[in-house]
Nucleic acid binder design. Structure first.
Lengths: 166, 166
DNA sequence: TTCATTTATGGGACTACGTATTATCTATTG
DNA sequence: CAATAGATAATACGTAGTCCCATAAATGAA
């Protein structure tokens, strides 16, 4: 058992320390939100989270949802990314593991991958340009295994590609 | 001399063929926009282009600017990307060369790079996941050489990082 | 516990970027 | 030059996210 269902799970404790270190307040809304993020599925967006909380009787305002997600990103508990559609996606960060994404343009499947050699190559590129990296994003858009078989709608795909905002 | 200042430069001819192949019309607005894109600097956004045209007496509506940029992206004459601020950036495509970007979070400098081994590695990743790539985006955010020396505003940088939408 | 201070929240107004609608206009074809 | 397919301008609309500010809650000291 990796995560004993203690009174305050690890993530919540990390968030509490983070807040204290910045002299920020430990509010009920923030705790509810953290609980929801870590009790839920992996990928979500701000609106889904807002709705999920509302359905559980925790009606937190949109502004607070966005503000709290920012805090979670800043303390490393949540990762934020864009999949080329025009809004942010979030995911609870598993430990300190990092990964990038393959995104299917037909069915929106998200496939995660990590390659140490890719990371190394990135460092190499940064060195060559005397650039100090702080964050990176690597995404590949295309067709997942399942969707390569299907007859996909060419014009629709082409349109999605041209709309990709990455 | 690579690009003789002919009556219709190469890019415009390519665009004309593209339009004809799709039974789209060759309008004055489209020609003005293409001329501006290829007579201008490398990176720009929709609003800058709109303004630049207006200043030259070519007042093209915002909607048409967006529509025409879409067409140029579809025919490969223009590339579209996002640098983590919340709007699209465009650049005139030089021949068929592809490149990715390093983006300075302090001064917004854009550094272009291309690495064949990175491209190969991406293909490798796709093969491993039986994924058919159609588009990719690779961006590294951080500090450029010049900005590593400067005393940068920590909180501001941290905030920009958390706002990155990539 | 209570008070003073600091920080957070809600909720609506607001912004930015982009898209849709529609009446009018124009490029193309014969 | 007429017919018609397609494009444009103008403006309304949509959406994701942010700002503002009056109110509320958390924290620390007394």
């Amino acid at each position: 058992m990796r995560k004993p269902k203690a009174d305050r799970p690890e993530e919540q404790q990390r968030f509490e320390s983070f807040l204290r270190s910045r002299q920020l307040k430990l509010t009920g809304e923030r705790l509810d939100l953290v609980a929801e993020v870590f009790g839920q599925s992996h990928h979500f967006d701000a609106d889904q989270l807002h709705m999920a909380l509302k359905q559980k009787g925790k009606a937190i305002s949109r502004a607070t949802v966005y503000r709290t997600l920012d805090l979670l990103v800043q303390c490393g508990l949540v990762r934020k990314s864009s999949f080329g559609d025009h809004h942010a996606h979030y995911e609870a960060a598993q430990k300190d593991e990092h990964h990038d994404h393959l995104i299917c343009l037909n069915c929106d499947a998200i496939i995660e991958y990590f390659r140490a050699d890719l990371e190394a190559l990135q460092d190499q590129i940064c060195k060559e340009h005397d650039f100090q990296p702080m964050h990176h994003s690597h995404q590949i858009f295309g067709l997942c295994r399942a969707c390569q078989g299907k007859t996909t709608d060419g014009p629709t795909l082409a349109h999605r590609m041209s709309q990709l905002n990455t």
